[in-house]
Design a protein around this nucleic acid. Sequence first.
DNA 1: ATTATTTTTTGGATCGATCCAAAAAATGTG
DNA 2: CACATTTTTTGGATCGATCCAAAAAATAAT
Lengths: 355, 355
Amino acid sequence: MAVRLIDVARAAKVSRSTASNVYANPDRVRPQLRERVEEAAKALGYAGPDPKGRILRAGKVNSIGVVGPGQWGVANVLRSPVFVQFLQGIAQACDDAGASMVLLPDAPHAKGIGSAIVDGFIFGRIEQLDQLDLAHRRRLPFAVVDFNAGPDVNAVMVDARAGTKSAVEHLIALGHRRFAIVSFMRGIGPASVLPPAVGRDLTGVGIQIDQEKLAGAMQALAEAGLNIDDVLIVHAEPWDETAAKLLLDSAPDATAIFSFSAMQAIAVINEARRRNIHVPDDLSVVGYNDIPEAALCNPPLTTLDSRSTEKGRIAAEFVLAGKRGRRHVLTPEIIVRHSTAKLLAHVDLDKQLRR
Amino acid sequence: MAVRLIDVARAAKVSRSTASNVYANPDRVRPQLRERVEEAAKALGYAGPDPKGRILRAGKVNSIGVVGPGQWGVANVLRSPVFVQFLQGIAQACDDAGASMVLLPDAPHAKGIGSAIVDGFIFGRIEQLDQLDLAHRRRLPFAVVDFNAGPDVNAVMVDARAGTKSAVEHLIALGHRRFAIVSFMRGIGPASVLPPAVGRDLTGVGIQIDQEKLAGAMQALAEAGLNIDDVLIVHAEPWDETAAKLLLDSAPDATAIFSFSAMQAIAVINEARRRNIHVPDDLSVVGYNDIPEAALCNPPLTTLDSRSTEKGRIAAEFVLAGKRGRRHVLTPEIIVRHSTAKLLAHVDLDKQLRR
DNA sequence: ATTATTTTTTGGATCGATCCAAAAAATGTG
DNA sequence: CACATTTTTTGGATCGATCCAAAAAATAAT
């Protein structure tokens, strides 16, 4: 049907090898012959060496599969700034390696993972362990993020605990002593303040990274000699718009807020403005994840850079290099903008009275 | 090196064909033999039929390449809600066809397009025509959007002119007679109001779709018997934050605004609120593109659904079906939310005096 | 002009699987 | 049991190119 290299070779009256060399090693064939082949190719409308053939011989595909949560067509992940940063990191590594990335659906009994023409996989989010089985079965290198998936699996993790700890320490260094936290509890319904005994332990209700965040915050507070039971924690879904209101209602005396996400932090800032609470003079706010909105918000948000781009880049580099079992831990870095400030004595006093 | 199907066949003492059938047509081989082959496979650690081999035989790859503007690692397209909608449309078609999508860099002399293992391409944005040459050379079907690229190229276009026209007609039907427009002029510097003679024709300074939008708006106004020279047009970059201010400064008597983008429309709404201009009672605002922010803004924005998702879906369907030279024109649909309202007589009078 | 050296060209094997027609084996019928 | 029919299994060819060692041709040296 289609014109093949061998057709071109025959038309130019040369061997397949020579025809092949015209494309793969042009300098190894005499200009005269090369021209003859090129003419034959043009005359026949040859599309050039078919990568499908080349790939079989070469073994390497120069492409990695990114397995998204669910199907990309309905997934909301493409709307998540953090996930997009992660994808861009992967893309950077691919650009550098001259590779391309395949967006693979994670269908049930995923045909995608089983039959994708790739050199390896990256799992952006682990929801079910059986996807990993499928990847294992392919015997290709793969990487997961923020997940421990056994000895021969590349893993890039973010030390959310250390990051959170440093963020809270930043607030403590500014003189803050009374805190409130927007924490996540997935699938819990409307935002609510849970009693300490329940709210301190996210095992089973939060995802692992949420637990880490809470632990880091608690550790910083404990090390500063603060009573962690005094800290008000609002538990909410990441998208719950009532969380900020509930938090400001419930913790009128808090001078510093740490939020598990940048969006919730921005919501707090906006709600504060509505109530004529000045950020950062009356209230310091720190978020998690450095999304574009964080820099644009007013005042610009002090937040943790959760290294999503690096996470993607390193995961992709592991896979592209054919590595297995590597482990890399990234530590979030605090980006101090203008939503945090030194606690002013009169504000502290004033707030204390509102308790 | 790696275990091949033939190794498994030898170990199980069957022919390659039988071993192949165990994976491709399990019901065609006797259970007894099938089990023997499966055991041999497990014993050898066989990874299953290598897709690279299958693909060569099958011809079809079940995958399409999406060529983005520039490199995906640095591209800002993944941050653009409209482009993400477009990608999701492609992903939907891929999901339905059990295919996957490859994100291909559009490097200079793109290695990506030349060697990608795909059944076809989709060009998300055409910046240089030589990319299309490369795709042509591969002799694979491909699709472009909002661009006319010759007879055997699939094209999906959006009739921005008709869409814009209907949006302005919506405003006219509500009684509005004095308009202002936020138009785009790429690379023009800070937002500015250009004299009619210059600002009415975007040829050469805008991209094609911007010209269409302006033409549609003008047509609606002309058909309603309005003098288009009375319409104030602010020309700006899409991201210019001063456009909304300039517009409200320059057109105090306008009762209706049409913006070339949703973000600029939202900016107008926000700026109006700052000035105590009530939307929609004092001012109706219509945007272009239905991004998530449009529904969330306050009041929810009346805007044109530019059919980005369908655009992607149809383009992908063309390519996946191996079609060539198809053409599909989509017409934007107006989504009436709450940023537009019937013009109130006293508002009209009041504004007229401010001229 | 003959031999030695270098550059080009070539045929065979390979990458890993699938398809198809023919052979072999199993099953059914008289 | 002999023969017809159906189900399984098999070897050969193919998908489209690339690599490698050997052959052929061109160039250099004696």
